[in-house]
Simulated scan of single mutants.
Amino acid sequence: MVQIQNLALALAAGTAVSGAAIERQSACSSYTIIDTRGTGELQGPSAGFRTMNSQIQQQMSGGKVYNTMYPADFSQISTEGTNDIVDHVQSTLQSNPDECFILEGYSQGAAATTNALPKLTGASFDAVKGVFLIGNPEHRSGKACNVDTNGGDTTKNVNGLSATLGGIPDNWVSKTLDVCNYGDGVCDTTHGFGINAQHLAYPTNSNVQQMGAKFALKQLQGGN
Rank of each mutant, 00 (worst) to 15 (best):
I102A: 04
A47T: 11
L42S: 15
I34L: 02
I33P: 00
D98M: 07
F125S: 01
I134K: 11
A123C: 07
P71N: 02
E41K: 09
T51I: 04
P71S: 05
T79C: 08
D126F: 08
M52L: 12
H88Y: 13
M60Y: 07
A110G: 09
R37L: 04
R140W: 00
H139M: 01
E99Q: 15
T39E: 03
D87I: 06
N53D: 09
L103W: 09
A123S: 11
P137T: 04
A123H: 15
T92Y: 12
T51E: 05
G130C: 06
Q55Y: 15
R37M: 03
G122V: 11
Y31M: 08
E80R: 14
T39C: 04
M69A: 12
Q43G: 10
F49V: 08
D73P: 02
G38C: 08
H88F: 04
I77V: 07
V86C: 02
H88C: 06
I34K: 11
D35S: 03
F132M: 03
D126M: 07
Q76K: 10
R37T: 11
L120R: 11
M69R: 15
N67S: 14
A111H: 13
G38R: 12
S61D: 14
S75L: 03
A72R: 02
Q90N: 15
H88R: 15
E99S: 13
S107R: 12
G38L: 07
I102R: 04
Q43S: 08
Q94F: 08
P118T: 07
E80N: 13
S95F: 12
Y31T: 14
L103Q: 13
T121N: 12
G44S: 14
F125K: 10
A112H: 10
R37Q: 10
R140E: 01
R50Y: 10
F132N: 03
R37V: 04
P118L: 03
D73T: 00
V65D: 02
P97T: 06
H88N: 15
N136Q: 02
Q55F: 12
D35R: 05
N96L: 03
V131W: 00
I34F: 05
Y66Q: 14
T92D: 02
E80H: 10
K64P: 05
Q43M: 06
D35T: 07
I102Q: 07
L117T: 15
V128F: 03
V89R: 15
Q108K: 09
K143I: 01
G142N: 03
Y66L: 05
G122E: 03
S46L: 01
G142H: 02
Q43T: 11
Q90Y: 09
T68K: 01
Q59S: 14
T68Q: 00
T113A: 02
A123P: 09
D84I: 07
G62M: 03
F74C: 05
R140M: 04
D87H: 09
A144S: 13
N96H: 10
V89F: 06
E138D: 02
R140L: 11
N136G: 01
I77F: 08
P118C: 08
R140G: 03
T36F: 05
T68F: 00
P137A: 02
L42W: 03
G142S: 03
Q58V: 06
D35L: 02
T36I: 06
T114Y: 00
R50H: 06
S107A: 13
T121G: 05
S95Y: 12
I134G: 01
A112W: 11
N96W: 09
P45W: 07
G62Q: 12
S46C: 08
R140A: 05
Y31K: 14
P137Y: 01
I33D: 00
N53T: 14
P45C: 04
A110L: 04
